[in-house]
């Protein structure tokens, strides 16, 4: 008896019709796509995008060349050289991040004792030549100078969770 019922069920294509009713319903559903260049998804203040180096309000760069970020970087994307500056402080002479290697894990930012290296919300950038995505200290500092307001606001928003 059960076999007979199954036989007729398969011949009447009931299950196929059920499946088609599902897709048929979704045909009239509103699409959920975010149409990227016109629409953008909301960002968290913890968004990890392009890197930047920050300065103190008096213009002094924050980085003290402790190399914690270089040590923690799982992708070995950071290269740091350190030397003593004329005023006797410890400063980096070279601070490069190879964005091609970087996996944007945010460990450098987490490990930094002085909040010098940060990841900003910027994600719409590109390189047109080989080496364009190899960011040097000057480029990172320039990034920081340009977006300091946003960076500071994001750190402030995150402060109570740290």
């Amino acid at each position: 008896m059960k076999n007979l019922i199954d036989f007729f069920k398969s011949f009447l294509l009931l299950e196929l019709l059920k499946g088609m009713s599902v897709t048929g319903k979704y045909f009239f559903a509103r699409h959920v796509t975010v149409e990227y260049p016109e629409e953008k998804t909301p960002q968290s203040f913890r968004f990890r995008g392009l890197h930047a180096q920050r300065r103190y309000p008096n213009g002094e760069e924050r980085c003290i060349g402790c190399k914690l970020c270089e040590a923690v970087c799982p992708a070995l994307a950071i290269k740091i050289e350190v030397a003593e500056r004329a005023d006797g402080t410890r400063r980096t002479t070279q601070y490069d991040i190879d964005l091609v290697k970087c996996i944007f894990c945010g460990f450098c930012e987490e490990s930094c004792p002085v909040d010098a290296i940060v990841e900003t919300r910027i994600y719409e950038y590109h390189g047109e030549n080989r080496g364009d995505l190899y960011y040097t200290k000057a480029m990172l500092l320039a990034n920081g100078d340009k977006h300091e307001a946003q960076i500071a606001a994001d750190r402030a928003a995150d402060a109570k969770y740290r």
Binding site: T23, G24, Y26, F27, F28, A29, R30, H31, V32, T33, E35
Partner: peptide, 13 residues
């Protein structure tokens, strides 16, 4: 377009 609509996306636009 039809495949897009049935998959809740807009299709080529």
């Amino acid at each position: 377009k039809v495949l897009g609509f049935m998959q809740v996306r807009p299709g080529p636009n």
